[in-house]
């Protein structure tokens, strides 16, 4: 199998410029001059990009609108510019109730989950990548099965299980089942396969333990893989909805998605907070995306490294 190393190759490679006359000749033979074709292409791409951005722009505009009005009439292209105000922002920063508590909870949970998952999953992946042992094939097939079975299939039995274990309504049970994350193990294994075994032998000659080799020699050189997987797992945890929805009971433990969902209830007057709260929940991820786009794309397309 292809042991493509998912490290350096940036996915966002600019397309190569026309390299030879042949390609120009073919595009000319299709009727459009290369210049016109480029313009048509540009127009098309801008149009599709604009459509794709409409929902995000709509929610941003919505943060300046009267929440109850937005909920009642829906989001519209026909925005009443005179009706825009900063009221929601004032509300968010002065009287948003538990909103920033949810924010802090989600942040804490994300940090713990990411650090834990990176450590545990890379540890496991190292075992699969660097050693030959009995049961390895079977074990790795298990990783592949776990990787592809959607969590929705597991939610009910797992929910019953953690209730019996007395772990319901704890962060422990949100984090624990996903520390050995199959996708992350898979990704790290691919990465480790590209590391020369001589490095390990050199460590052994120097009298480093098998685990010392992992922690002190291999881990420090896996930063690009760490970055991609930190982003992937961070995003999954930040957005995680289903599992926390099942296990969290106490309002003071709610995360952002759970809290935002409670704002959807028709009781009380929460709609002002709903739109701006939803928008602010996107901001950390959007900032990270603008800064580390390459790692986002590597992380989120990790499953396909296999090709």
């Amino acid at each position: 199998m292809a042991t493509q190393q998912p490290t350096a190759a940036p996915v966002l490679r600019p397309s190569p410029p026309d390299r030879d006359d042949r390609s120009r000749r073919t595009s000319r033979s299709e009727g459009l001059s290369p210049g016109a074709a480029a313009w048509v292409q540009a127009g098309f791409l801008v149009l599709i990009a604009a459509i794709s951005l409409v929902p995000l722009v709509a929610i941003f505009v919505g943060t300046f609108q009267d929440g109850n009005e937005v909920i009642r009439r829906g989001m519209t292209f026909d925005v009443d510019l005179g009706g825009l105000s900063l009221d929601n922002y004032v509300l968010l920063f002065t009287d948003s109730g538990p909103y920033f508590r949810w924010f802090a909870n989600t942040f804490l949970l994300t940090v713990v989950q990411v650090v834990g998952t990176l450590l545990v999953s890379s540890f496991v992946a190292y075992g699969f990548a660097m050693y030959d042992f009995k049961g390895k094939t079977l074990g790795f097939i298990m990783v592949l099965l776990v990787m592809t079975v959607p969590f929705e299939m597991l939610m009910l039995p797992l929910y019953v299980q953690v209730n019996d274990m007395g772990l319901a309504d704890t962060y422990t049970v949100i984090v624990l089942p996903f520390l050995a994350s199959a996708v992350t193990i898979f990704f790290f294994r691919q990465y480790f396969l590209g590391i020369p075994k001589e490095l390990l032998e050199a460590g052994r000659v120097d009298g480093v333990t098998e685990f010392g080799i992992f922690f002190r020699i291999v881990l420090p050189i896996t930063k690009p893989a760490m970055a991609a997987m930190a982003i992937l797992n961070g995003m999954i945890t930040w957005n995680n909805f289903l599992w926390p929805l099942l296990v969290l009971r106490s309002p003071e433990k709610f995360t952002l998605p759970i809290g935002l969902n409670t704002l959807l209830t028709p009781y009380g007057n929460n709609y002002e907070l709903l739109i701006i709260g939803a928008f602010f929940s996107l901001i950390p991820i959007l900032i990270l995306f603008l800064a580390f786009q390459r790692f986002f794309i590597q992380g989120m397309t990790a499953g396909a490294v296999k090709g």
């Binding site: 930040w238 957005n239 998605p257 929940s281 991820i285």
Partner: peptide, 9 residues
């Protein structure tokens, strides 16, 4: 970018 939004949002 849309893939970064939570299903809730």
């Amino acid at each position: 970018v849309p893939a970064l939004t939570s299903v809730v949002v």
